[in-house]
Simulated scan of single mutants.
Amino acid sequence: MTDAPAPAATLPDLATTDPVELTRALCDLPSVSGDERAIADAIETALRALPHLEVLRDGDAVLARTTLGRASRVVIAGHIDTVPVQGNLPTQLRHDDAVGEVLWGRGTVDMKGGVAVALHLAATVTEPAVDVTYAFYDHEEVEADKNGLGRIARRHPAWLAADFAILGEPTAGHVEGGCNGTMRLEVATTGRTAHSARAWRGHNAIHDLAPVLAALAAHESETVTVDGLDYREGLNAVGIGGGIAGNMIPDAAVVTVNYRFAPHRDAAAAEAYVRAVLADALADLPDVTITVTDVAEGARPGLDHTVAAAFVRAAVAATGAEVNPKYGWTDVARFSALGVPAVNFGPGDPNLAHADDERCPTAQITDVAAALRAWLAPAS
């Protein structure tokens, strides 16, 4: 006899299950990056049972959308994968004297709460005030070239067409608009090797980095207002290397620079800005090179857009949410690259993402669901 195949993973009824219990069910399904097939199958099956939605799939990314002919369309998105489990599943409900009921376990913060809220709304808000595309995607916690949202943007950009997008990343129930961009550059100097007892016969490449480090240390980062939010930039040395041996003058050295830039700049403008900051420091250095090794552009929040403004009003009224800029980079930038302004809004403290004690107050899940419902179905 051969073993019977394992039963397919399933989710409880999306329309009747509380978002907290749905979060728990999602967390307890296998979903570490690269192993999303079971949870994607379960999500697809649950969504296909809803006749008011058109369901699309690419790999382990599943999208569902209304087609009501509304004047505007929004995307509500979230990734379905997690980082590896560290003995923190299955989930547990616990009590915390400070915040009340708390859901513990991998994915409770990053970001099954946001996914559960989106699935529940997809099932229960059948006549939203705007057309909605719900996007659930794979491989967010690994290399960027595997990211399911990026894959959809390349293969099926029309699937993500919208006037506004919300990414359910953890924000502790506050609205974080857009995100800063990030760029890494290597500033490399060259010298000439010599015995350190006869240093005058060489040229010290490490010493040539001194004016570069001084320029970075003296630099005062800007705060830039974009769509009503104040984005604080940062320009810093984050790594340095050079040297051959303890008795040799180094002939090469490099400092790695990270620039976190406000979303009013694109990558070309960000690189030009860094070069301008370092121009005087580099002016007298021989054979210095600046190489961009990594860049991800930021995202404008678009809070001046009618749809976005209505969302912010609903979120603030429903939960008292604060509206802040997002300093770190998130997948909202992928929407921005498609011309769709976006914000981050989801339950869970982002400082607990990936932690062994990952946990989320259940009230945040409920509050985020209430805020989104108030926006999507204001008359309900």
Rank of each mutant, 00 (worst) to 15 (best):
D3C: 08
P5M: 08
L11Q: 01
P12L: 10
T16E: 09
D18P: 03
P19T: 04
E21R: 09
T23A: 05
R24C: 10
D28G: 07
D41I: 13
I43Y: 01
R48K: 11
L56R: 15
D58Q: 14
D58L: 12
L63Q: 05
T66I: 12
A71T: 08
R73M: 09
I80V: 13
D81R: 09
V85K: 05
V85W: 06
P90G: 09
R94H: 10
H95I: 03
E101P: 03
W104V: 07
G105S: 11
T108P: 11
G113S: 06
T124R: 14
V125A: 11
D131P: 01
V132Q: 00
A135I: 08
V142A: 12
E143T: 13
D145W: 08
N147Q: 09
G148R: 10
W159G: 03
A165D: 02
A165Q: 05
A165W: 00
A165T: 04
I166M: 01
L167V: 15
G168Y: 04
C179K: 00
T182Y: 05
R184L: 15
H195F: 07
A197V: 13
W200K: 14
I206L: 15
D208L: 10
L209F: 14
V212E: 06
A214Y: 03
V226W: 12
V226Y: 06
D227V: 01
R232V: 07
E233A: 05
V238C: 06
V238W: 06
G243L: 13
M248H: 01
D251W: 14
A252E: 14
A252S: 11
V257I: 15
V257Q: 07
A262V: 00
A262C: 11
R265A: 10
D266G: 03
A269S: 13
V274Y: 12
A276S: 12
D280C: 02
L282G: 05
L285V: 15
A296I: 10
E297G: 05
G298H: 10
L303M: 09
H305I: 02
V307F: 00
A308Y: 00
A309L: 08
A309D: 11
A314V: 08
A315S: 05
V316H: 06
A317V: 06
G328Y: 08
T330M: 11
V332T: 02
R334P: 00
S336G: 13
L338D: 11
G346L: 03
G346A: 03
R359L: 02
C360K: 10
T366R: 14
A374D: 09
A377W: 11
P378L: 01
